[in-house]
Design a protein around this nucleic acid. Structure first.
Length: 499
RNA sequence: GCACCUCUAGCUCAACGGCAGAGCAGUGGACUCUUAAUCCAUUGGUUCAGGGUUCGAAUCCCUGGGGGUGCACCA
């Protein structure tokens, strides 16, 4: 046992394990029965006066995070999921042999402890150790106990290490979990049923995106990973389920950025007898309630595209504005899908948007909108009235046949949600699908196909329905106050690690 | 896919053309109330990989790899 590189360090700890086994001690025992979590200990005895010794016996377990040796005393900080507590180890109490064993514990080891609750002279709540049992030996050293782990590559690849040492990382995932459970609670309260629909699709529909392709061997069948939940959920509305939602992973074979991961989590819901205005209100309620549940406030700092924070109270009613009005506001030119393509191409060029010949007026308006208006949408804003051309599943606006009853929610210049009055006319839906197919055949890989089974479902009759999709990762980002989606995805997609 | 930045001990970082260093972790020692304990001593390196320039390369150049950021892509 020489040196102290990583290999030598691991060898030293493996030797310790071998030495324990030789003594008949199991370094990896099968279980340990706790009497209290550390948070429960703190909750029950957290207000003891300094210098108090109690007769209260507890069994607690956790990971050794810090160790301070002080002659015939050892202080160690252990942590479980919810809290940290100090172990007070006196040689006079545990005896020479146990004291030596405890002294040989490494940072990162898991331990189970029996002892009494006490506070030190300075008031630190502690467990005075009577018996300590190693629950699992750490063979690999922990990252720096004070500086933590900051290398992003290591943090994302070795998320376990990130979670051990970085409080901020743990917190972001607590927020994410709280957001998702808040959504489930809110939706249950509104009578929504949670369902699970296929991830493997024969047709990748419901959104404009490049899919991942896979193959089923026994059926010798090409399959796509889903890019949206929409078309299956609406089949359930046809089936009479009235209010359904799914929180699930979708997959899009596109670039990776601070806002995009190839697999991400969508919540989609469909509400029979409602229209887009109703699900818009649901979106607002879900997110505001999630803020209350996850971070205890509706006031958040929203970052603009330059990274500057803007303090916003989400509880204030959200702005609603039509896409064409936002374009008019920013360009000074009234736009509408009824206008000739040439006019809109000219407007696009004036604002630095390079257009493609296959784009119609509606697509041009969307592109101009993204170029001129999107970066100004810091506070929550529902952008409404998307052109029919770019909304093949949305119902036409009851007052304007070239626009749809659709909205997208933007917060901090990012799109968080999308919803509409669902198109339920099977004849019109077929025409829309055929336009999608024609665009795809003309070389636009993100466009859709004719989904015959979905059309068959619509032919059975789908009631008027409002639909909503929310990007859960982006809501988690907003409420956790982080600027990269990788901070709210436990294992973000990375290249193969070269070991 | 393109551009820029970055990669040094297990971790966090120095050294920026002249002998690869520090703190933490580790090891040995002192200490019965510490709090990132402290103090003394000490081990530890394929400087991401390969090539080049140079008397001399962690440092400059080229190629490749990982990561980050921006752009492109992206309902």
């Amino acid at each position: 046992m020489t040196g102290s590189g990583l290999a030598a360090e691991k060898a030293r700890r493996l030797d310790r394990i071998a030495e324990m086994r030789a003594r008949g001690v199991d370094p990896y025992p099968y279980r340990f029965d706790r009497s209290h979590t550390l948070a429960e200990v703190r909750g029950q005895w957290g207000s003891l006066e300094p210098g108090t010794e109690t007769e209260e016996r507890v069994s607690v377990a956790g990971r050794v995070m810090l160790k301070r040796e002080q002659g015939k005393l050892i202080f160690a900080t252990v942590r479980d999921r919810g809290d940290e507590i100090q172990l007070f180890v006196s040689k006079a109490v545990v005896g020479d042999d146990s004291f030596a064993d405890i002294g040989h514990l490494d940072l990162g080891d898991w331990v189970g402890v029996e002892g009494t609750v006490m506070t030190t002279r300075k008031g630190e709540l502690s467990v005075k150790v009577e018996r300590l049992q190693l629950l699992a030996k750490a063979v690999r050293p922990m990252p720096d106990k004070w500086r933590g782990l900051s290398d992003t590559d290591t943090r994302f690849r070795q998320r376990y290490a990130d979670l051990i040492v970085n409080e901020d990382a743990r917190r972001a995932f607590e927020v994410r979990h709280a957001v998702i459970s808040s959504f489930r609670r809110t939706l249950a309260g509104k009578g929504f049923i949670e369902v699970e629909t296929p991830v493997l699709h024969v047709e990748a529909g419901g959104a404009h995106a490049r899919p991942f392709l896979t193959h089923h061997n026994a059926l010798d069948m090409q399959l796509y990973l889903r890019i949206a939940l929409e078309l299956h959920l609406k089949r359930l509305i046809v089936g009479g389920m009235e209010r359904v939602y799914e929180i699930g992973r979708v997959f899009r074979n596109e670039g990776i950025s601070t806002r995009h991961n190839p697999e991400f989590t969508m919540m989609e819901l469909y509400q029979a007898f409602g229209d887009y205005s109703e699900v818009m209100a649901v979106a607002e309620e879900l997110i505001v309630q999630a803020a209350r549940d996850a971070i205890g406030t509706t006031v958040v700092d929203i970052f603009d595209h330059e990274g500057n924070p803007h303090r916003v109270d989400l509880a204030k009613p959200w702005r609603r504005a039509r896409m064409i009005d936002l374009v008019a506001e920013k360009t000074g030119v009234e736009v509408h899908p009824s206008q000739p393509v040439a006019d809109l191409r000219a407007l696009a060029e004036k604002h630095g948007v390079r257009w493609e010949p296959r784009w119609g007026s509606g697509k041009l308006i969307e592109e101009i909108f993204e170029a001129v208006a999107e970066t100004s949408l810091i506070e929550p804003t529902f952008v409404t009235g998307h052109p029919v051309e770019i909304s093949p599943l949305a119902r036409a606006d009851r007052h304007d046949p070239l626009l749809t009853e659709r909205f997208e929610l933007f917060v901090g210049t990012r799109e968080l949600a999308n919803g509409y009055s669902e198109l339920n006319d099977p004849v019109e839906q077929r025409l829309r699908f055929e336009e999608e197919q024609a665009a795809k055949d003309a070389g636009d890989a993100e466009r859709g196909t004719v989904d015959e089974d979905y059309l068959r479902a619509l032919e059975y009759g789908m009631p008027p329905t409002g639909g909503l999709g929310i990007g859960m990762d982006r809501v988690a980002m907003l409420l956790a106050g982080v600027t990269s989606i990788k901070e709210v995805i436990l294992f973000p997609t990375l290249r193969h690690e070269v070991l």
